[in-house]
Design a protein around this nucleic acid. Structure first.
Lengths: 351, 351
DNA sequence: CTCCTTGATGTAAACGTTTACATTATAAAA
DNA sequence: TTTTATAATGTAAACGTTTACATCAAGGAG
């Protein structure tokens, strides 16, 4: 009468033609299944003659090992999960793309989970990691809530986190210093004579935003510029968030002359708003981005921004992750660092 | 001595703490595993009293059914695959995003496969579908090669294809007519007085490009304009492809006055090249895109383009797919249509 | 009162692998 | 020669589910 719907499986049977199993291969090659299994997995204990016959049988039947059976025995899924806040941000799209190709080369599949910057979705994603028996996670976080950290630890699986997880629990890849990118951007603005420099952030609950905001603060403090409450505005790491930031700064009676943004999407959104409002960039206000996504070069004016290469991130994250998954590294949490470098284009004016 | 590396699994054992199984639940609730299984999956055959005890046990232990064991018995993975040519194109990023949320609501996971417009990768992807025992595929194709069609058929699984697969083999979602979008774009240009109208396509081997090219041809034929060989240039559906198209058209001695593009990425790439070359859009050349990605509104000049809503695509594709996966629809291939509609912005000049 | 249907439950056999253990043949050591 | 290590193979027991089949109680029909 009752049914626990949350866990239920649907029961439809799409016509499944009998697939060939290891048994078929064993029979065809005249050996036992154990030998076939050994041939497939290990380098030892299979004679040359039988190896040849097994190989032929495999090719003849286009045999593929059944992932479920394998998983059931080994508890490994050959899947890793990539959790990102916004796949529509080209930064993460590219990150996914290169992580995918590295993973494929190792025989792994990557499951993408897009959280839309939502902490609830992040928790959902982490739950899914264990539900799917993923062998590892690359976690590009928004939040470092206690609950998230805990569930990540409970996974008891290789985790590599993006900047923000400073606690030395998980492998991490990030910039040399917290908010280094925005620090560079802000410094650049200050060096160009700006004193009324604002910060346009993303999701204010995100640790990524905290870090970037701290980079901004560090820069203005070093230049002895006083921080102004109303010059910090954080909304969302998206075009729309930037658009709203633009509207906010435009509404200020004492407008900033320059804005350092927490990423390129925000910067581009700001420029977009300014264009509709007749505010010229960089004549009226200078803007600098962060990430150097392809779009930043295309937009008018071309965006001065900070290189933050997601391919580099993906490669370093993959190395950390696969060191644990494949090579059994089981030591202390490690860190990898990505370079940050300013690229000057047309969105900053010297005053 | 020998090992079939292609199929080998790595053997590292990341410390796996014993997970709780259905047996534990059965013992705790004082029933048999069969009853637990029935409780989880079906609505019938479980008494109220035991149901309650089982439910409590499940919650007490945070029990989750093991996907491998389930898959092994049922041959269903609760995974579908989405194959796209370019995840860096926001059109596909969004498509992924909405497909993902629909799938999650049904308890399904979507595996994204990015082919980078490569036919070889498409074949790789299709192979992976059966290797992973995915329960269905949404296939946004580049190629409709015999080999692809064949391997798709051999999957013997629900497939929904994007425009191009006109053969009535698979469920399909597309525009009302082949190339309708580009047809609208081209007509718009012609109606604005342009006669030297060019077509900037994507991957020339792609059926998507064929369709869009045919839309262009249909439009100019209807207007009695003679088609010119050198006014058709196809390269790749990316910013870079568009950039090259821009260079190509700029190099022509008798330049077109307007270009209809196979997607927004190309259009934006073209505009980008023109800007570096000092060619003004739309004063010197008009450009119209296709897809209406968010970027098209942001770019300068804002792009006149054709609405092609990937959310709509995703929803319709999901309905077709899940009708088969969940509700056992097993009839003839069906079609769903997406509306195409021109949106006028600032990249077209009337002459 | 017997016969049947039907709801509720348990038993046990798959599903397709991996792998510990047992067994044999072979070669090296004594 | 006998012992012993080692390479090559097979047997069978898991892994955690689903489900066909068997069983049993209870209630209606005859």
């Amino acid at each position: 009468m009752l049914c626990y719907h949350e866990l239920a499986m649907d029961v439809n049977v799409y016509k499944t033609k009998k697939s060939i199993t290891m048994n078929d291969i064993a029979r065809e090659a005249g050996v036992s299944v154990a030998t076939v299994s050994r041939f497939i997995n290990h380098e030892v204990y299979v004679g040359e003659e039988k190896a040849k016959r097994i190989k032929e049988a495999i090719e003849k039947f286009h045999y593929m090992p059944n992932r479920f059976a394998r998983g059931l025995k080994t508890s490994r899924s050959m899947q890793i999960m990539l959790i990102v806040p916004d796949i529509k941000n080209p930064y993460y799209a590219k990150l996914y793309d290169v992580l995918q190709s590295i993973a494929h080369a190792e025989g792994y599949v990557v499951i993408l989970f897009n959280t839309n910057e939502s902490e609830a979705e992040e928790i959902h994603a982490i739950k899914l990691v264990s539900e799917l028996n993923c062998d590892g996670v690359v976690f590009c976080s928004v939040s470092d809530d206690r609950e998230i950290i805990e569930s990540l630890k409970e996974l008891n699986k290789p985790v590599v986190a993006s900047s923000g997880f400073d606690n030395k629990i998980f492998d991490t890849v990030h910039g040399i210093k917290p908010g280094q990118g925005v620090y560079l951007a802000t410094s650049h603005l200050l060096e160009n004579g700006h004193r009324k420099v604002a910060f346009a952030g993303g999701n204010p609950k995100s640790i990524l935003n905290d870090r970037r905001l701290s980079g901004y603060r560090r820069a203005i403090a070093e230049y002895g510029v006083e921080g102004r409450e109303e010059y910090c505005f954080s909304d969302s790491f998206t075009l729309e968030g930037g658009y709203r930031a633009g509207a906010y700064f435009a509404s200020l009676s004492d407008r900033p002359t320059a804005i350092a943004c927490a990423n390129d999407m925000i910067a581009i959104g700001i420029i977009q708003y300014f264009q509709t409002a007749g505010i010229e960039v960089p004549q009226d206000i200078s803007v600098v981005g962060m990430d150097n996504i392809a779009m930043s070069e295309i937009v008018k004016p071309a965006l001065t921004t900070v290189i933050n290469d997601s391919a580099e991130f993906a490669e370093k994250a993959a190395r950390l992750l696969f060191d644990r998954i494949l090579y059994d590294y089981d030591g202390a949490a490690r860190e990898a660092f990505c370079e940050r470098k300013l690229v000057e284009r047309d969105s900053v004016r010297r005053i």
